[in-house]
């Protein structure tokens, strides 16, 4: 394998990992505040649909992104209303959001576009273009650095860069700001936060809203940056894999980031060995190749990487009057 090959694999790794990173950061913010976010998948799917639908109707990628953010935050608020305000069961609420998104996207898609639940294929102007960074052509011949800059760093769409920036941002927000200190405190011991005179409810709502925003970017990436339109169930379990990566990374931003890259790498690698005759086994059937990342996820999560310690108050609604 040449250096260029490696750069190409890492490039596709990053692209595959983008929705995982954004969703996992969303989950991390929500769960650090004590709210389980199993509805990542549903928010991802709904915002992918909203982005494609809005972009198809208006012809603007930016309107598509706004629609994605809007629907994702709306679903987060529904989750918050059920779990924070009404102290409902957080897993059930999350599953409800997933089922709702799975059904509604198809129904709305059929109603709006009559293409069996898909949105029309989007023209170039209605999508986020690849961004060519300065020097990607002029430095292309520089050994090592040239391919690195041109293939891996340059040429991604806006959401990819946002995903990479989301990691230091979430870290900074949680560990370097007052809001972050309180947010982590509310995920560990909400009663301590309450007794310090801070609203548990408002803190948790802000956490789920941030989660909604990050998920919305991920959805827009799927349908109007990476893809050119919405396809039924296009989230394909990425929200769940992001959740797995978040647990695998023990609710710590950089660890979670690398977990996402690992899952992305497995998937990107699987795409590369399709149709390639491997030594000993020969050509691997495509079905086996496609299922590999998911099998790897199960194996990686099977617990031999040390026990993850979730936030203490995760999943526990805060009740004042005991």
């Amino acid at each position: 394998m040449t250096w260029l090959d490696l750069m190409l694999i890492l490039d596709s790794t990053l692209r595959v990992a983008t929705p995982l990173i954004l969703c996992a950061m969303a989950g991390l913010v929500s769960e650090r505040a004590g709210v389980i976010d199993i509805g990542l998948e549903g928010k991802l799917l709904a915002s992918a649909f909203a982005a494609a639908a809005a972009a198809a109707l208006t012809g603007s990628a930016w309107v598509g992104l706004l629609a994605a953010l809007g629907i994702s935050v709306f679903l987060s608020l529904v989750h918050g209303f059920a779990c924070i305000t009404h102290k409902g069961e957080q897993i059930i609420s999350g599953i409800a959001i997933n089922i709702l998104a799975s059904g509604l996207t198809v129904v709305a898609g059929v109603a709006l576009f009559r293409q069996g639940g898909q949105t029309p294929s989007l023209p170039r102007e209605a999508r986020f273009p690849s961004i060519k960074l300065p020097g990607s052509e002029s430095l292309a011949d520089v050994p090592w650095f040239g391919p690195f800059w041109r293939e891996l760093v340059s040429g991604h769409t806006l959401p990819v860069y946002l995903a990479v920036l989301a990691v230091p941002f979430v870290w900074w927000l949680l560990w370097r700001t007052r809001f972050g200190l309180r947010l982590r405190a509310v995920g560990e011991m909400p009663v301590a936060v309450d007794s310090a005179g801070i609203s548990v409810t408002w803190l948790r709502y802000r956490a789920v809203i941030i989660a909604g925003l990050l998920c919305g970017i991920a959805g827009a990436f799927l349908s109007i940056a990476h893809g050119a339109g919405f396809v039924r169930e296009m989230s394909a379990g990425k929200g769940y894999i992001a959740l797995a990566a978040m647990i695998f990374g023990k609710w710590r931003p950089w660890s979670v980031f690398f977990a996402c890259l690992l899952f992305g790498f497995l998937e990107a690698g699987a795409a590369r060995i399709q149709g390639v005759a491997l030594p000993l086994v020969g050509e691997v059937p495509i079905e086996v190749v496609l299922v590999l990342p998911y099998v790897a996820t199960v194996i990686l999560l099977a617990g031999f990487f040390g026990k993850a310690m979730p936030p203490r108050a995760l999943g526990v609604p805060y009740r004042k009057e005991r």
């Binding site: 982590r184 011991m189 007794s195 310090a196």
Partner: peptide, 19 residues
């Protein structure tokens, strides 16, 4: 009402962080 994973300083700050 103390958060076990936080330092003494962080626990004392919580609620009046000064910025």
């Amino acid at each position: 009402m103390l958060i076990p994973d936080f330092t003494v300083l962080e626990n004392v700050m919580l609620g009046a962080e000064g910025g």
